[in-house]
Structure formats: structure tokens, C-alpha cells
Design a protein around this nucleic acid. Structure first.
Length: 556
RNA sequence: GUCCCAGUAGCUCAGCAGGAUAGAGCAACAGCCUUCUAAGCUGUGGGUCGCAGGUUCGAAUCCUGCCUGGGACGCCA
């Protein structure tokens, strides 16, 4: 299945055996053999630093150790052509030329499944992301969260985890009241009344649109009703409309959730009181100043947190504790939350809660997505809920394009802040690296089309050993890396590794394309091999882009 | 004051479970289209890896302290 990994495993095992045979270490003292792919091709196909690591154990000079290892290595069994000892004691392995020969067949046989693995062992992972309050449009920052979360889930799925995407709907808090008030104000304004927006109102365009719709559907019927009656209705109406907008926007952004979890359902099922009871029974709560407190300091938090306020209402934390309890009770091996940087301070108290409830805290983790800074006309735009001034996901999709936005947001580490230059994204969208990658895919598709038109066989047998040009070997090696890239990106939860990989592969393809001709009537056998190579690269690019949720076009 | 993230080329960022001369894109400069898509390729220039210590055969990577920028420290959500 995974040619490269198999080759590496065999080589590692042979090195292991050689070290023992040379009596440089024992089964107990031998370190893990680490193989790396040298950055410089002059250093071979694989390299290991084992000789340096053994220096202490064997009490010999690294280069001497390296000599002894190579003398004891079964080159034949490891498919090694040549060995060099270099630098301070690196052992460089040059593999027999055909070690990459099976790559193409492996890729073509696996098709869309190439790159996937079973590393995750079917472990059940749940990722909760976006979870924006249903009080307006999704904006720039949410888009980053959505792209990251979605690609992370794709990665988990590809790496053999069982993954579920969940959106937590905050439909029970104060903000729903504010939503109702905001819709009410906009509604009355639509009807020509001069009404101020509430202090904590939501000023975005989304609420205005909702109010317009209300007027269209119901006319001024609700202006006559009592404020209380109206508010009740507007809250529900606003909530439903907002959720519909959010779901639509996300769907168009190619993000679909398996589960939408309502905060209210926790109230309705008494799950909050149940969670509180467990905390109380554990002796983790106390009353002070007319409020109920949670001793999060017992688990390393800065200060204790209020669970029930003086006025008898829950704080935000309380239902959230019940929510996370609910998640773990659903039997996930891992629950991952994707949060904005402004929520990072919330992690210790959530961790505290889960510990107090008796869950292993390792099952819970949070990925923090750093802020997105918006630049327009060279100036940083301050985003604020109050003014509603922010670029929405919808605008981004319309003006920049879905592929470009998704790619852009997962091109960087989630730990780094991100500058988003709206003018650049709009005006120079052709400079976006996503097109570079897509172009590589389209280029291959054109070649394959040409091959058909010119009468070359595109499905026949081929001899992979004819692929000996430097650029061909580069491509084979790169293509062979995908399974490890996906496995590592999933394991480290770093989607941007895939973005980088796909870019590198595209670069290798473009370089090959400019150096070698694929369709050559004078050399039909090599042409067949190259066509097969192109098909493998195309598949690999498509699979990588698939993980990113970016289209792989056949023409550009 | 405490906590989190970042500080690497002119700009935006990779690299950080320690390893060989620190990489890419953009920008700059010089080349490459009668030949499968030039949204491409090839080459050149450009770096005290924030600063100072420490750990070791070896540190951009690990530890400590400091500096700078951003974020968080609510009986808001």
C-alpha cells in the first residue's frame, strides 16, 4: 500500500540488525532508528544519524560506528545500492534504482483512496468548530475556523479515524434576547418608525435583512402586538433565520456538519442540573456572595468560577460543562474544539470541569486559531460587532472564490496570526498559490487528453524502470510521500502540511514538464511510462486538494 | 501582575519529538514560448533565525531570563 514507508521499514530493520551484529548496542540500549530524507539529493535517498546517537552508548567515534554498521548491513535485503558516511557521522543510503518502481501502480490501483491509511485505528474523534452565535453573518475569522476545522476532519477521515463534525448552537443565552431586540428594532425601523438599536444589539446587515423579510412576510402585523409577545416571536424567528443563513453559507463554503447540537436541549433534558450535581457531590462547589462557585483552582485554574449567578441564572460556563460532559458520554475517544484566540483563557476551566466530572482530561483538547487581521486599502480594518463592520464569508466567497479562500486559510499554521489583504485577494487573485497547484492538475489533464487525441495508449502496460531522468525520480519520490504526509498532518493536527505538500508536488511537476516531453512518438515505451507517471501525479494532486476541499479542475 | 500565540530574507510565512551549506512564495535582477497550457520554467542577489545565558559531539529547534507585537484574564457569551 505504502511503498515508501515499506522501503523505510525494511531499511530500518536491517540497520537495527546490523547495529546488534556489530555489538554496538543491545536490544535494550539501542535507540529507535530514525530515517530522514536528506534535503540535499547529494546525500542519498535516506539518511540516518544512528551512529551519532550510538556514540555515547558504544563509546566510540561516530564515524567508526558508522563504518561498523555498514560493514554488517545486508545491502541486498535492504535494497541499498550504495552507502556513504558523511559529515559528523551520517550514513547516507542510495537505494537501488527501482525502489520507486511500484509507486505508480500503487497510486493507480488505490485511486481516490491513495494516501489514506488506517493509522487512526478507527478511533472516534469529534471536532466541534465554528459554533458561532446565531446572531449574524459569519465573517473572516469564522471562515478561518471553518476551513481549518473542516480540513482537520478530512485529515482524520483519511488517516483512518472515525470523525464527526459538530456545531454547537448557542440558542439559550442572553444573546438570543439581544437578537430578538435587534430584530425588533430593525423591524420597526423598516416600518418607518424611529427606533434606536439596543445597547448590545447586533448591527450587521444580516439582521436588517431578516427584518426586511419579516416585513415582506407579515407586513406591519407585529407592530400592533405587545412588546413581550413580539419579542418572543422575533427571538425565534431571528434564531431560525440566522441558523439558516449560517448553514447555507457554510454549505456553500463546502463545510457540512454531521450534527447540530442545541444548547437548549441541555436545559430541556435537565442535563445541566445533572452535571452540577456531579460537581456538588464531588465537593467542587461552594456558595459565596449569593452565587454558586466552582473550585477550578483545584485543577490549576487562576481563580474559581461562578456557575450560578446572584440572579439565579447560569453563567455561560455551566451549560458548556454539561455540553462537554454530554460529548464525552457519547463515547468519543477524543473531543477537539476549535476556538478563536480570544477564548484561550477558557481552556483551563473547561479542563478543570472535565476532571472534576471524572473524565480523563487527555480526551479533551482545543485548537486555537489565531486572529485574522483585515487590511483594506493598505490599512488595518478594526472589526467590531457593534458596528457590524467586517467582511463576511459570503463576500469572501463571491469576491475571492471558494478555492482560494479555503487554500489561503489552511496555508499557514493555526498558531500564526494572519493578515488578509482584501484588495490583494480581489485584484491579484491569480497570484494565489492555489492556482499554481490547480494549474499543475489541469496541465496533466490536458496532456492526457492530447495523448488520447494523438493515439497514444493511456491504459496499457508500462515499464516503470524506463523512468530514470532526475525529474522523473523527483516526481516518483514526491508522489510516494503522500501517505506519510497525511498521516503526519493528522497526527500533529496540522492541515497546512498538506497545503505545503501539494504545492511542492505541483512545483515538481512544473519543473518536470519544462524539462521533459511526455508525448514522444519516437519513444513509445518511455511515453507509456510517462503517461502512467502523469496519471499518478494527477491522482495524487487531486487527492491532496480533496483533503483541502479545493477543486482540481481539468481545464484552466 | 498572570497565562497563551508570534518574533526566521525587503514583505508574507514554512522549518522547531536537536542534526549536514537555514527554505518557499511575493518583490528585485538576468534568461527561456515554431515543440504536450508561459497561471509555467531556469538562474542571481538578499538572513547577527528578537536579545542574553544554559543543556551537548551538535541549537532556528530544548531550558531559563529579558525585549517587542497580538490576544486573554467578567456573576458577558
Amino acid at each position: 500500500m505504502n511503498v515508501l514507508a515499506q522501503t523505510e521499514e525494511t531499511l530500518k530493520a536491517q540497520i537495527h540488525t546490523a547495529v546488534l551484529a556489530a555489538e554496538l548496542a543491545t536490544e535494550d540500549t539501542i535507540p529507535d532508528i530514525i530515517l530522514e530524507t536528506p534535503k540535499d539529493k547529494a546525500h542519498g535517498d535516506f539518511a540516518t544519524n544512528i551512529a551519532m546517537q550510538l556514540a555515547r552508548i558504544a563509546k566510540k567515534a561516530p564515524r567508526q560506528i558508522a563504518d561498523e554498521i555498514t560493514a554488517n548491513l545486508d545491502k541486498q535485503a535492504a535494497s541499498v545500492e550504495k552507502i556513504d558516511i558523511a559529515g559528523p557521522g551520517f550514513i547516507n543510503f542510495y537505494m537501488k534504482q527501482d525502489f520507486l518502481g511500484e509507486v505508480i501502480e500503487t497510486v493507480l490501483d488505490a485511486g481516490d483512496a491513495y494516501g489514506t491509511s488506517k493509522d487512526g485505528n478507527g478511533e472516534k474523534v469529534q471536532v466541534e468548530f465554528v459554533s458561532v452565535n446565531p446572531t449574524g453573518d459569519l465573517h473572516l475569522g469564522h471562515a478561518r475556523n471553518a476551513a481549518f476545522g473542516d480540513v482537520l476532519c478530512n485529515l482524520f477521515a483519511a488517516a483512518g479515524y472515525e470523525v464527526e463534525r459538530e456545531y454547537y448552537i448557542n440558542d439559550a443565552g442572553n444573546q438570543i434576547n439581544n437578537l430578538g431586540l435587534s430584530v425588533e428594532a430593525r423591524y420597526l425601523q423598516e416600518l418607518g418608525q424611529s427606533v434606536d438599536m439596543p445597547e448590545d444589539g447586533y448591527h450587521g446587515q444580516a439582521i436588517i435583512d431578516i427584518a426586511k423579510n419579516l416585513v415582506k412576510e407579515k407586513g406591519d402585523a407585529w407592530a400592533e402586538k405587545s412588546h413581550e409577545e413580539r419579542l418572543d416571536y422575533f427571538k425565534e424567528y431571528g434564531l431560525k433565520a440566522s441558523l439558516r443563513n449560517i448553514e447555507n453559507d457554510l454549505k456553500d463554503f463546502r463545510v457540512e456538519f454531521d450534527s447540530w447540537f442545541s444548547e437548549r436541549s441541555l436545559f430541556e433534558n435537565d442535563q445541566i442540573d445533572a452535571a452540577l450535581q456531579v460537581l456538588e457531590d464531588g465537593g467542587y462547589t461552594y456558595e459565596k456572595d449569593g452565587a454558586l462557585w466552582f473550585k477550578t483552582t483545584a485543577f490549576g485554574d487562576d481563580k474559581d468560577r461562578v456557575l450560578i449567578k446572584q440572579d439565579g441564572a447560569y453563567t455561560y460556563l455551566t451549560p458548556d460543562i454539561a455540553y462537554h460532559k454530554n460529548k464525552l458520554d457519547r463515547g468519543f475517544d477524543q473531543i477537539i474544539n476549535v476556538w478563536g484566540a480570544d477564548h484561550h483563557g477558557y481552556i483551563p476551566r473547561m479542563g478543570a470541569a472535565l476532571q472534576a466530572l471524572g473524565y480523563p482530561v487527555e480526551k479533551f483538547s482545543v485548537k486555537i486559531i489565531q486572529m485574522v487581521n483585515l487590511f483594506e486599502a493598505g490599512e488595518k480594518v478594526k472589526m467590531s460587532k457593534r458596528t457590524g463592520k467586517a467582511v463576511s464569508l459570503r463576500e469572501l466567497m463571491d469576491e475571492v472564490g471558494i478555492d482560494a479562500v479555503r487554500y489561503y486559510f489552511v496555508a499557514r499554521s493555526n498558531d500564526s496570526q494572519l493578515d488578509f489583504d482584501m484588495d490583494l485577494a480581489k485584484s491579484q487573485s491569480n497570484d494565489n498559490p492555489v492556482y499554481y497547484v490547480q494549474y499543475a492538475h489541469a496541465r496533466i489533464c490536458t496532456m492526457l487528453e492530447q495523448a488520447k487525441n494523438k493515439g497514444f495508449a493511456t491504459d496499457g502496460d508500462f515499464d516503470a524502470s524506463l523512468l530514470t531522468a532526475e525529474k522523473e525520480l523527483d516526481l516518483l519520490k514526491k508522489v510516494g510521500e503522500l501517505p506519510q504526509v497525511i498521516a503526519e498532518a493528522a497526527d500533529k493536527q496540522m492541515p497546512h502540511k498538506v497545503t505545503q505538500y501539494v504545492f511542492d508536488l505541483a512545483s515538481t511537476l512544473h519543473s518536470f514538464y519544462n524539462a521533459e516531453k511526455v508525448l514522444d512518438g519516437d519513444n513509445p515505451e518511455r511515453t507509456s511510462a510517462r503517461i502512467a507517471l502523469m496519471k499518478a501525479v494527477r491522482q495524487t494532486l487531486a487527492n491532496g486538494l480533496g483533503i483541502l476541499g479545493v477543486n482540481a479542475p481539468e481545464k484552466m
